[in-house]
C-alpha cells in the first residue's frame, strides 16, 4: 500500500508542478490545488499509514498519529483560503489586463 500511496503522491506532485508552470492563470490555479493536495497528503503520510485506527480515545485499540492530522486539517482550510485568493487575483488580473497570461502580457492574443 505504501508503494501505491507514494506513487500517487508522485503523480499528484508531477501534475501540480506541470500545471503551475503553464502560462495561463487558470491552469496555475488548478496546479496549486493539485500541489496543495499533494502537500497535505505528504504531511499526512509522515504519520505513517494506519487502518481502522482513528485518533479518538476509546474508538479503537490503536491510534493513528494525531499530530499530522491536526496540522493537515488547518492546512486544508488555509490552502482553501489561498486558492480563493489566487482565484480572485487571477480574476482581477484577467479583467484588468484583458488577458489571462501569468505574465500579464500576451501580445499575440486578442484581449478577452
Amino acid at each position: 500500500m505504501e508503494i501505491l500511496v507514494a506513487l500517487m503522491l508522485g503523480v499528484l506532485t508531477t501534475c501540480g508542478v506541470y500545471l503551475v508552470l503553464r502560462p495561463r492563470t487558470f491552469s496555475v490555479v488548478l496546479g496549486l490545488t493539485m500541489l496543495s493536495h499533494a502537500v497535505n497528503l505528504f504531511l499526512f503520510s509522515m504519520g505513517r499509514l494506519h487502518s481502522n485506527a482513528p485518533a479518538v480515545i476509546g474508538a479503537a485499540e490503536q491510534h493513528a498519529d494525531p499530530l499530522p492530522q491536526a496540522l493537515v486539517l488547518t492546512a486544508i482550510v488555509i490552502s482553501f483560503a489561498m486558492t480563493a485568493f489566487v482565484v480572485a487575483l487571477a480574476l482581477r488580473s484577467a479583467l484588468e489586463l484583458r488577458n489571462d497570461h501569468v505574465d500579464g502580457v500576451d501580445k499575440e492574443e486578442e484581449p478577452i
Binding site: E2, A6, V17, L21, M46
Partner: peptide, 23 residues
Amino acid sequence: VATIAGIGVGVLSFAVMTRPQQT
C-alpha cells in the same frame, strides 16, 4: 522537470513511510 519533482516526492515519502516513527 515536473516528473523529476514527482519522483523526488514519491521516493521521499516512501522512504519515510517505511521507516519506524518516533513521535
